[in-house]
Structure formats: structure tokens, C-alpha cells
Design a protein around this nucleic acid. Structure first.
Length: 489
RNA sequence: GGCGGCGUACCCAAGUGGUUAAGGGAGAGGUCUGCAAAACCUCCAUGCAUCGGUUCGAAUCCGAUCGCCGCCUCCA
């Protein structure tokens, strides 16, 4: 099997993936900010993270995955001014910041479950030195770790303390005229803070806050060696990745928009604190765009969420298939029609799984002809996560099974589904009959009797009646089966 | 101003130097079926924004033009 290859934003090239220690991958992915629901654009990013994690596991790696939850520190204007968005929501809703965060975290977890996105387990309390471990961690639970990192940065001479906060000295870090490693823009080229008021305490407009002081109106404040305040918005990622995964990460993911500022600053902070390389592979996903081609974003105000799809009677996993149908580095156009098209794929695969016969299921050895598909699947997957081709391979294999009337593909299909995350296994023994209300069963039975009498007028009448009640009747060789159309789950 | 990306059939979307340009949806015809549904078969881009160039050969590399979008402020 070809080794896993992935596009590394640090070098702007597809590279063979080699983790620092054999067999183990430390993976940090930027998680949600929890002051609003996650829109579908956000969810695309998490589907990507999940798929990447599954692909690594498929390649035999033990993935230690950390995702942060930002429940503090994102300002409406800049790191050193403006109102914390969580606090803003809290004031608007008359809740505490923690309550606001809890609410949106619960919603996020629900959405992830609907999309079969496996999240890391909640971070356990206390200190966690090596070995690296998976964790879903909240910023506000890790203030100590952040303070520790800021302390190291200041001790190393890359941070300076002022009355309004502790700032990171970007020019000192980059050197004169230095360009960012990811964005490849020099400081002069970046019109940083051009449209913003910035604190006069900063040596340079490019400098960013590590710790913010003297903002008495903020609800969330913590004591620190520099005074009471709160963390800047980049530091949580440096601190938590280091705490749970170690000082050098194998993989770091995030949205494309994080390249020039957030990740650039994370690298600077982390490396100035530790003296070690921060992350060896940076991967960035492209945006989901609306029908007009415009980015879907929180700040734009209106955005579709997963519940909108569910309310429209669409299987949430259709959205997952939609995501898998495009490369993670390509913009993906979202529309109800594109999701519905993806839903057909889900229906197709589910139907196949549902109708698998016992012989095919119990066969330990898949048909010889599946090997070719397995090879194509791996190749696509390991080629910078080419999920569209991987998905196409799966669909073609199932079509081939139908064509050859040879269902011995389940082992292979299941391996594929471990990566795709469509939960086909769940459909295996899902009976099409016996679960519906007695009233429905009665009508189906009556219709079967009508068919036996060749009373097709009555038969069609009953089919229409069942259809109106939300049930689809199919006549098979083994008799009539009924399924609920677009049921709630 | 700087940086980056995109433009492939009605729609979504792979392919990035070399057999007939994946796959899905929609559409058309067919097999099967009492009729449907499901499934399968056939058809559906001599062409990949436009114009030049490099090459034996380009959707794929280079240049120009047009159009769209993102980032440089929180945002996946």
C-alpha cells in the first residue's frame, strides 16, 4: 500500500506523512467557538478532521487527537479591545458565559453525533505530561497552562508587559523584514491593524496580546503573575496542544482563514516558548460556499445549520456525503439540491446493506474481484485524502456486486465505511417490517391479500393510502415490504 | 496595496502532460414488474472561461485577458 500523503501548508506541497514516533500521530485541530451554533461551513471542517483521523487510523496509526473548545477570548474587534463574543451573547441572553458555552457545546456534540463525527473524550482533570493523549478541552479549564506558556515566552524575551496587557514581540521573533512561514508575507506587506484601533502600548501594530489586563468590564477574569485579566486568542491552542500532545505536533489542522494570523501567531508563540518546532504538518480545509459563491460565515449573520437540513427531512449523513464528494482543499458549493443528490448515495448504500443476505455476510473471504476496488480506494485515500475518488470507488463496487449478483463484498465495504463514516453496519439487520405501527402492518397485509386476488385497483388504492401516511411499499419476490419515508432519524 | 484560490456537461464534482475527460444527481430510452419501487443496461462535454505560447502531445505547464471568491479584523 502506498504511504499516506497530505498537503502540508508549511511547504505548500503534497508530502509523504511520517510521524515523529512510529505508529503514533499527535493531531491538534482547531475546534469551535461556542457563542453561536456551528453552521454547515463549520461542520464541513469537522467532517474533514474526522475523515483525516479515520484515514490515519485506516493506515494503522494510533491517533492522539486534541480539539479545543474556545469558550473565552474572541473579541469583536481585536485581541486587545472590544467585547468578548461569548460575553456579548451571555449579556443578550441573560446567562452566564459558562451557561452560554455549555449550551452551544451540547449542540455541537449533538451535531457531531448526527454526522458520525467522533470527538475526542473530554479532557480529564489535572496535569497531563507525556504520553500524548486525546482530549476535547475547554479553554477556560486550561488557564493555568496558558499562563505557564506566556511565562516561558516572557522569560525568553519574546513577550513584554505593559499596563494594557502582555504582548508578543513579533518583529523580534521574525527578525527585520521577516516573513511569516505560512502566509509568506512580510510584516510590511501585511497591513496589520490598518482598519483597527490598536493599543498604544504595543511596540508594533503586528504585536498581539498574550494576556489582556485592565479590562474591568469583562466578566471572565483570572489572576496571573501580571495581574487580573484574560488570555489572548491564540494562546489557548499553544498551551493545550503542548499540555496534551507535547511540544512538537505531527499534525495541526484548521480552516484556510487561520493561515495568516492565527496559525502564524501560534507558531511564533509556541516556538518562542519551547525552542522546538511547533507542528510538522499543517493542513487547512477550504470553505463551504453558498449558492452565490460567497463564504458562509458566522459574522455574515445568516447561515444554514444542520438542524435546517433535518427540518427539511434530509438525512444528516447526506451532508457528510456531500463533503466527501469534494476535495477538502476545494471550495464546495452548498445547496439543498446538492445535499439531496448526496442523499441518494446514502439511500443507495443503505439499501444495499439492508438487503445483504446471510451467506454474503458470513463469508469470511470477499470475492476476488473486490481486491481491485480495495486498491483503488486506498490509493485515492492516501493521495491527499481524495475522498471523491474513494467514494466513487465504493459506489462502483456496490454496482458491480449488483451486476454480478455477487454480494460477497461486506468485509471490504465495512473497511471502506470505517473511513467514510456512513454507519452502514447499522443498516444490516434493520428490518423493513415489524417496526411500523400495527395500523400500517394491517394495511400492508390487506394490500397483499388484494394482490393475491389480483384486485389491483384495491391494491393501488392501499399503496396510495400508505404513501399518504408516509410509508413506501415495495413488492419483492419475498412479499411486500414497507419503509417509512424520510423518518426523523 | 499585499497574499492566495477558483472558472470542467443542466447541477455537484474528480482528473493537473500521453489510451475513449472519474463518480454522483437530474434528464431520455430500455430490461424486470399487474403497476410501481429497487436494481441493472444504453444514451447524455471531439471538449475542460477566452486568446496566445511551450511540446511529438495540454483541461493539465507558461503568458495575457475576462469573470468569481477568500485572507490581511473575530470567523472552519
Amino acid at each position: 500500500m502506498k504511504p499516506f500523503q497530505i498537503y502540508n501548508s508549511l511547504h505548500r506541497a503534497v508530502e509523504e506523512f511520517v510521524p515523529l514516533r512510529p505508529g503514533i500521530v499527535t493531531f491538534y485541530s482547531c475546534g469551535p467557538t461556542v457563542y453561536l451554533p456551528q453552521h454547515l461551513g463549520n461542520m464541513r471542517a469537522y467532517v474533514f478532521v474526522d475523515t483525516l483521523r479515520r484515514a490515519l487510523r485506516f493506515n494503522g496509526y494510533d491517533v492522539r487527537h486534541v480539539m479545543n473548545i474556545t469558550d473565552v477570548g474572541h473579541m469583536t474587534s481585536d485581541a486587545d479591545a472590544g467585547e468578548d463574543k461569548i460575553e456579548k451573547t451571555a449579556r443578550a441572553q441573560g446567562k452566564s458565559p459558562r451557561e452560554v458555552a455549555d449550551f452551544y457545546i451540547a449542540q455541537f456534540k449533538r451535531d457531531c453525533a448526527s454526522l458520525n463525527i467522533e470527538l475526542p473524550p473530554a479532557a480529564p482533570a489535572g496535569d497531563h505530561p507525556a504520553p500524548p493523549q486525546s482530549a476535547l478541552c475547554r479553554a477556560t479549564d486550561n488557564i493555568d497552562a496558558m499562563i505557564a506558556v506566556i511565562g516561558r515566552i516572557v522569560a525568553n524575551g519574546y513577550g513584554y508587559v505593559t499596563p494594557s496587557g502582555v504582548y508578543f514581540d513579533v518583529e523580534k521573533w521574525r527578525g527585520p523584514g521577516g516573513a511569516g512561514r505560512l502566509a509568506r508575507q512580510s510584516l510590511a506587506e501585511q497591513h496589520a491593524g490598518q482598519r483597527l484601533e490598536h493599543s498604544p502600548d504595543k511596540k508594533s501594530p503586528h504585536d498581539f496580546a498574550l494576556w489582556v489586563l485592565n479590562q474591568p468590564h469583562h466578566l471572565m477574569q483570572w489572576d496571573s503573575p501580571w495581574g487580573r485579566g484574560y488570555p489572548g486568542w491564540h494562546i489557548e491552542c499553544s498551551a493545550m496542544s503542548m499540555k496534551y500532545l507535547g511540544e512538537t505536533l505531527d499534525l495541526h489542522s484548521g480552516g484556510l482563514d487561520h493561515i495568516p494570523v492565527h496559525h502564524e501567531n501560534e507558531i511564533a508563540q509556541s516556538e518562542s516558548a519551547t525552542g522546538h518546532p511547533f507542528a510538522r504538518y499543517f493542513v487547512h480545509n477550504a470553505f463551504l460556499v453558498g449558492m452565490e459563491g460567497a463564504k458562509i460565515s458566522k459574522s455574515a449573520g445568516r447561515f444554514p445549520v444542520l438542524d435546517d437540513l433535518i427540518a427539511a427531512g434530509i438525512n444528516p449523513l447526506a451532508f457528510r456525503v456531500l463533503c466527501l464528494g469534494a476535495k477538502y482543499r476545494s471550495e464546495l458549493a452548498f445547496s439543498i439540491d446538492s445535499v439531496r443528490a448526496a442523499e441518494k448515495n446514502i439511500d443507495y448504500l443503505n439499501e444495499f446493506a439492508r438487503n445483504l443476505n446471510e451467506t454474503a455476510l458470513s463469508s469470511e473471504q470477499d470475492a476476488d474481484w473486490t481486491a481491485e476496488y480495495a486498491e483503488r480506494f486506498c490509493e485515492a485515500l492516501n493521495n491527499d485524502l481524495n475522498t471523491p475518488q474513494a467514494l466513487a470507488t465504493v459506489l462502483e463496487m456496490v454496482a458491480q456486486a449488483y451486476r454480478l449478483r455477487d454480494q460477497r463484498i461486506w468485509n471490504t465495504l465495512q473497511n471502506f465505511d470505517d473511513v467514510l463514516g456512513l454507519d452502514l453496519k447499522k443498516k444490516l439487520f434493520e428490518s423493513s417490517t415489524g417496526l411500523e405501527p400495527p395500523e400500517i402492518s394491517r394495511l400492508v397485509k390487506e394490500r397483499e391479500e388484494a394482490r393475491e386476488r389480483k384486485d389491483f385497483a384495491r391494491s393501488d388504492e392501499l399503496r396510495n393510502q400508505l404513501d399518504a401516511m408516509g410509508y413506501l411499499v415495495k413488492d419483492t419476490k419475498k412479499g411486500s415490504v414497507v419503509t417509512a419515508k424520510r423518518s426523523a432519524t
